[in-house]
């Protein structure tokens, strides 16, 4: 069972839900796929040690002896990652999208590929009763997708996998949803929350994944905004986390609120039961 936790917008409580849900269940594998700003470690407190796995992508290198400065590769590259300076082709690696095209275009077979690190994957195999994986994108790298795809490779089929997805609705989020059996959409009862929830729903529907909503910072009067939308769309509301200073304050110090409010573990277990009923 793979559950991805996402939100159309940052700061709605996606990490709060993912970490507290994970701490309430057993036999969990947690993947922090919010690789631009991985924050789940603050709540789970893993010890990664010194070791990490590199995530690599291919970038071209040019054999200057074979290159005839014909410019075919420069003209071909849609990303402007290649420049011809006199007789020499200069490669701007940050611009390269690793399409591999220049290698095939070169009439002199002067282009080979080498590996470049885009990010890192770290793991603590046993922390707070779970297996915790974290992906990190290197600063200056444009695309988080290869790091998330590398994390997806780590999925254990016999565990309950919880994936903390990057916020938004672009390719990295889609990469974190693509293998999921179920998506939890986290929102808050404000016009911002609703607006961004609609975007997230659109993505999840396009990918054909079953989903449910968790309302964070829930308040009786305000929740109607989300509830009306959810019932119109036929999406169930899995639970509501109240707008309480105590919860906000625990979050601020990096304490998962289920540790201080253990009754909430049952609540998250019920959420999981509901999800199992849908996924089967």
């Amino acid at each position: 069972m793979k559950i991805t936790v996402l939100s159309g917008k940052g700061g709605t409580g996606k990490t709060t839900v993912a970490t507290n849900l994970a701490l309430s269940l057993t036999n969990v594998q947690f993947l922090d796929a919010d690789v631009e700003e991985p924050n789940s470690y603050i709540f789970i407190r893993p010890d990664f040690g010194e070791e990490y796995q590199q995530v690599l992508r291919k970038v071209p290198i040019i054999d200057q002896n074979k290159c005839r400065a014909c410019r075919s590769c420069v003209d071909f590259c849609e990303y402007n990652a290649l420049v011809l300076l006199g007789e020499e082709v200069l490669i701007i690696k940050e611009m390269c999208h690793s399409c591999g095209g220049c290698k095939y275009i070169c009439p002199k077979e002067a282009i080979r590929e080498e590996d470049k690190e885009v990010g890192k994957i770290r793991v603590d195999k046993s922390v707070a009763g779970m297996e915790f994986w974290q992906g990190e994108l290197n600063i200056g790298e444009a695309s988080a997708v290869p790091v998330i795809e590398a994390l997806n490779q780590k999925v254990s089929e016999d565990k309950t996998v919880i994936i903390d997805a990057p916020p938004g609705t672009t390719c990295p989020t889609i990469a974190a949803i693509s293998d999921a059996n179920y998506c939890i959409l986290v929102t808050e009862p404000t016009p911002f929350g609703l607006h961004d929830l609609k975007m997230a729903v659109e993505v999840v529907k396009e990918l054909g994944k079953p989903c449910g909503i968790i309302i964070n910072r829930s308040e009786e009067d305000a929740d109607k905004l989300i509830e009306d939308y959810a019932s119109n769309e036929g999406i169930s509301i899995l639970t509501k986390i109240p707008f309480k200073r105590e919860i906000a304050s625990l979050y601020s110090q990096g304490t998962p609120f289920v540790e201080e409010m253990p009754e909430w573990k049952e609540n998250f277990q019920e959420v999981f039961t509901k999800i199992k009923q849908v996924v089967g």
Binding site: V74, E78, Y79, N80, A81, V83, L84, L85, I92, M95
Partner: peptide, 18 residues
């Protein structure tokens, strides 16, 4: 020609200047 480039306009413009 780099004016409307989807990415790397500065590099493409530099190539033109070179």
């Amino acid at each position: 020609s780099a004016k409307g480039a989807t990415g790397g306009a500065g590099i493409q413009a530099a190539q033109t200047i070179v």
